[in-house]
Design a binder for these strands. Sequence first.
DNA 1: ATTGGTGCAAAGGATTTGCAGTCTA
DNA 2: TAGACTGCAAATCCTTTGCACCAAT
Lengths: 154, 154
Amino acid sequence: MSHMLAETERRTSKIRAVDVLRQYAIAPTQQRVEIAQLLLSKPQHVTAEQVMAMVNVDRPRVSKATVYNTLGLFARKGLVKEVIVDPTKIFYDSNIDSHYHFYCITTGQLWDVGAETVQLRGLPPPPEGAVVDSVDVIIRLRPIAPPPETDEVV
Amino acid sequence: MSHMLAETERRTSKIRAVDVLRQYAIAPTQQRVEIAQLLLSKPQHVTAEQVMAMVNVDRPRVSKATVYNTLGLFARKGLVKEVIVDPTKIFYDSNIDSHYHFYCITTGQLWDVGAETVQLRGLPPPPEGAVVDSVDVIIRLRPIAPPPETDEVV
DNA sequence: ATTGGTGCAAAGGATTTGCAGTCTA
DNA sequence: TAGACTGCAAATCCTTTGCACCAAT
């Protein structure tokens, strides 16, 4: 983030963000619009901490509590998708098209894997009384030649 | 846990547990054997909290720190698999055969989905410099006719 | 003796919550 | 003005860590 970009380039327009929030039945408050603009600017995976930092770059705009509450709300409403790959934090994915993920267990990086080319078949039907909410596919990656672990050899 | 079961029925034999630990290059201390016996008794998904409760039913045997350290060690060594489906806790899976999971987002229940019948194809190759560590498939379930949320409408 | 393992309590980190002040319809 | 939202700080919850004691080689 070393260079300045015009607001209109760096972020989704305020108008559009308000519009999208309304579509998802979310009251467009100032803070929610700020966060939505960031998220909707492009497909990305961000943590609450990152949103907190991004939205408050130049000056305080949104408090930590509101960032957490807002991301939770967005996820419940379907504006973004939670990605559960790391037990220590939640990623929020602004790409809500059906897709899967590469996740590097060493660096914590996340990449999208488009669902178009992937064939996932033969899944058993859900247990009685339940319906499928979503299907996650996470391909966990490891760098080649991993650094020697604290594990010993037999 | 209202009925008593003989130790030999409820748990994997101590001999076998020691043996398995050795196979995984884990020094078989008393505490690790206790935990391994529980885990290996059957395919199951347990949290650290549950292990803590199970292993200490009749009398204190293993401390909380040791339960956490031991489960982490077992996972690193490959004796059990961590299942990351809930951002608030880790499940440890004593079934290390290739398989996938149903996860009820309402009740937190986990079921195994055998990998035999599932066809997962067309995955793109991993990014340069990385190799696939594992592939998780999580089918998130929701009870039919979910209870009304605390969400507001515009 | 040395090394590793355990237990306790304290620390840590992400997320949630209580509550008073603020905004908006 | 009422109902909703925000911000701050305190509280929670799961997990990790520091460190002294214990165990096994």
